[in-house]
Amino acid sequence: MPHDHAHDPDHAHAVLPSEPALRVKALETLLTEKGLVDPAALDEIIDSYQDKIGPKNGAKVIARAWTDPAFKAALLADGTAAVSEMGFYGRQGEHVTVVENTPEVHNMVVCTLCSCYPWPLLGIPPAWYKSDAYRARAVREPRAVLAEFGVTLLPTQKVRVWDSTAEMRYLVLPMRPEGTEGMSAAELAPLVSRDAMVGTGIARGPKP
């Protein structure tokens, strides 16, 4: 009989995690033993970002700004205060500046240092936002990057690139799409994509 552990259930061991995954477990074990980490608190943090906090929050802010001029003015004047009032505050949302796209200016956001991002409004950044390519090229050749994202700017539009830091995070207020007159904030929110709020997309009108 051939010697074959793989098909012998008595010998099948648990799937071995990758080296960095094992090292993270080791770090957590060490810090928990030292009383510096509460595993329940870690679970709570993961749950929040996996299920509760994401771009839907930011989309509600944008849709409200499109339909409520007083709120929009407040949002542009003091982003942190305006989004906090809607319940979107906390980690990495302490200093939020909202920048408005117009027919003259298209804004896009990057973090050239690491991956600073307004978590309470957009959740955890996608891999491309964290990639070296985006972090380097967004500043150097924003129009080429935008073209790759499928964004064609108006000939009149300049591009402004905002570099996030631990102290300041940015949210783009996209232009309200054509053909959405009379729509409510609740109807508009699904039209606001994550990319539109990072400035690597635009808000698109409802499909006819």
Partner: peptide
């Protein structure tokens, strides 16, 4: 998904 591997999430939370 917010995190593509469980250890990414664990490291982030830590």
């Amino acid at each position: 998904p917010a995190f593509t591997a469980p250890w990414h999430a664990q490291l982030f939370a830590l």
